[in-house]
Amino acid sequence: MPKTARPHIHLVSDATGETLKSIATAALVQFRKSHDEVEVHTWALVRTPLQMERVVEAIAAMGGLVLFTVVDLELREILVRRCAKAKLQIVPVLDPIMHAFGKYLGEKAQNLPGRQHELDAEYFYRIDAMHFTIAHDDGQHLSDIDKADIVLVGVSRTSKTPTSIYLANRGYKTANIPIVPGLPVPEELHHLSNPLVVGLTASPDRLISVRRNRLIAMNESVETEYVDAERVREELNIARKLCSRHGWPIIDVTRRSIEETAAAILNHYARREEQHRQQELGLAPPHDASGADDEP
């Protein structure tokens, strides 16, 4: 590709293209110099030969790298043949995975486009989780909070709500409860038996910065206890003591994205579930794997 040309990446799919988008995004963030220059084009729901011919014609006019997840053999043949003719580099991103799965499972893939988006039981469970999470945001509807899979606690602006929504989208019923100075912790929180409870914390400097920006956005005074350094440290100390007293894991979100925070939470959740399974089978003694701070 000439250095003066704008780089193009084409995502061609006979389904929604969401898989390709995720893969391309994960790869592109590793290339800092080119990340902002790359123009990504998504060609989704390409399901007829005529559509594929038109897509490849448009791609050839721009040039670039082609990533595809096309399972229909006829459409793949058109894409590969036309891209080769136009001297375009192509990457069948799912082929190595499908080959490995087929070899390991001893089964041939069905080659059905968009199969992962069918409205199965898992889909409806995610919807149910989302409804639950929205209803139990910010300490609401505590009467049935024990039905949650995960409960997040923490002081204001520690990303409890966005993390809860992300977890709900993964299918986990998630409630979040704020720790507010001067107010008692809800009694229900002390008697949970089902959910994994996780404390979210952040560095005082980071928390003050986020809170100041929040107040400015709301056109409110920034000279309040809400952003007072000593008060913020006291809040964080109270929250940490609460989590330590109950043996709840604590995750520092200061340098984490929402996705990274959620991944750390799900690691705790998976370990707890595995521990429960082993206890039920009599393979491991009861043990509390939580309580320690998560890695920074």
Results as ranks from 00 to 15, higher is better:
Arg6Leu: 14
His8Tyr: 11
Ile9Gly: 12
Gly17Phe: 01
Glu18Leu: 13
Leu20Ala: 09
Ser22Tyr: 02
Ala26Pro: 01
Leu28Ser: 09
Gln30Val: 03
Phe31Pro: 01
Arg32His: 07
Arg32Lys: 09
Ser34Asp: 09
Ser34Thr: 05
Glu39Trp: 04
Glu39Asn: 08
Val40Thr: 12
Val40Asn: 07
Val40Tyr: 03
Thr42His: 04
Leu45Glu: 13
Pro49Cys: 09
Gln51His: 09
Glu53Met: 10
Ala58Tyr: 02
Gly64His: 04
Gly64Cys: 10
Leu65Met: 15
Val66Gln: 05
Val70Tyr: 01
Val71Lys: 08
Val71Ser: 06
Leu73Tyr: 06
Ile78Leu: 09
Leu79Val: 03
Val80Thr: 09
Val80Trp: 07
Arg81Thr: 14
Lys85His: 07
Leu88His: 02
Val91Asn: 00
Ala100Phe: 01
Gly106Ile: 07
Ala109Gly: 03
Asn111Val: 01
Leu112Glu: 12
Pro113Ala: 05
His117Gly: 00
Asp120His: 00
Glu122Cys: 06
Tyr125Arg: 12
Arg126Phe: 13
Met130Pro: 13
Thr133His: 12
Ile134Tyr: 11
Ile134Pro: 02
Ala135Trp: 10
Asp138Met: 06
Gly139Leu: 04
Leu142Met: 08
Ser143Trp: 14
Ile145Pro: 06
Asp146Glu: 11
Asp149Leu: 14
Val153Lys: 12
Gly154Tyr: 15
Thr158Tyr: 15
Lys160Arg: 15
Thr161Tyr: 15
Pro162Met: 13
Tyr166Cys: 10
Gly171Glu: 06
Thr174Ser: 05
Thr174Glu: 01
Pro178Gly: 14
Val180Glu: 00
Pro184Gly: 03
Pro184Arg: 03
Val185Ala: 07
Pro186Thr: 12
Glu187Phe: 06
Leu189Phe: 11
Leu192Pro: 04
Ser193Glu: 01
Pro195Trp: 07
Leu200Gly: 12
Ala202Leu: 04
Ile208Asn: 13
Ile208Glu: 10
Ile208Cys: 10
Ile216Pro: 03
Asn219Arg: 00
Thr224Glu: 00
Tyr226Ile: 08
Val227Cys: 05
Asp228Pro: 10
Ala229Ser: 14
Glu230Ser: 11
Val232Arg: 00
Glu234Gly: 00
Glu235Ser: 09
Leu236Trp: 08
Ile238Cys: 08
Leu242Tyr: 12
Leu242Thr: 00
Cys243Ala: 12
Ser244Cys: 11
Ser244Leu: 14
Ser244Lys: 11
His246Thr: 11
Gly247Met: 13
Gly247Trp: 13
Arg255Ile: 08
Glu259Leu: 08
Ala262Glu: 09
Ala262Val: 07
Ile265Val: 15
Leu266Arg: 04
Asn267Thr: 10
His268Cys: 10
Ala270Asp: 13
Gln275Ser: 08
His276Val: 05
Arg277Leu: 08
Gln278Ala: 11
Leu281Val: 02
Asp294Lys: 05
Glu295Phe: 07
